[in-house]
């Protein structure tokens, strides 16, 4: 074998780099697919584009088994607490791709019900533009995540410990006046409770 002659018997590397190398080639995405981008996500996973070539085909719908959350589609007001809860349920180390214009910035839906960018509410690592992005763009985003994992990853995920401050855009939340007696649907602990009818 020609290869055995070229390579040394052992390599010296850091444990961090080894862990990152293993991690980046086995990202398990959690498809948080809400709208149109979810169909492109399915297209990326199916025959023609085949995300399995990059080691990310193991889509798991349980957040407990995933380390890459792909938010595909717009996130409505009612969905934000659900999204946060799912993000919190994922084990570290974890990353997040905001797929498409709607998830990244609200897109064409600048209305009362749609959140203008999920990065105001959860941390995002890679943004994918497009409405919806082509599958190639999503694959590129996965490659970008892989590069990020290789560069910054550590074996015990201590790189996240340093990031304890909010890094997204300026929060637009404000105190609502007494005449606008409208509140958001609560936090991720209470928002999905079943409500009694009004009458």
């Amino acid at each position: 074998m020609a290869l055995t002659g070229l390579l040394p018997d052992f390599l010296v590397t850091k444990m961090d780099a080894l862990a990152s190398m293993l991690r980046k080639h086995s990202l398990w995405p959690m498809p948080f697919a809400t709208a149109c981008c979810g169909i492109e996500l399915m297209a990326t996973a199916s025959s023609r584009y085949d995300i399995a070539r990059f080691g990310s085909e193991a889509m798991r719908f349980s957040p407990r088994q995933c380390d890459l959350m792909i938010v595909a589609g717009r996130v409505a007001m009612k969905m934000v607490p659900v999204m946060q809860r799912i993000w919190l349920q994922m084990p570290e180390p974890k990353w997040c791709i905001s797929m498409g214009a709607c998830a990244s910035s609200g897109g064409v839906f600048d209305t009362y019900a749609v959140v203008q960018g999920i990065d105001r509410f959860i941390p995002v690592d890679v943004y994918v533009p497009g409405c919806p992005p082509r599958p190639e763009q999503l694959i590129r985003a996965v490659l970008d995540i892989q590069e990020k994992v290789q560069r910054t990853g550590t074996i015990d995920a201590r790189e996240f410990a340093a990031r304890d401050t909010y890094a997204g855009p300026t929060s637009l939340a404000r105190e609502l006046g007494p005449d606008q007696t409208i509140v958001a649907p609560g936090d991720y602990n209470t928002a999905t409770r079943f409500r009694r009818p009004l009458n």
């Binding site: 946060q84 974890k94 600048d110 009362y112 105001r120 941390p123 304890d164 890094a167 939340a173």
Partner: peptide, 21 residues
């Protein structure tokens, strides 16, 4: 009489940072 962009309800959620998770 309700504006298209609402009264800002869509921004009134708490933010989850890396430290929370």
């Amino acid at each position: 009489d309700y504006p298209l962009r609402g009264y800002g309800e869509r921004h009134n959620f708490q933010t989850v940072t890396r430290a929370d998770s």
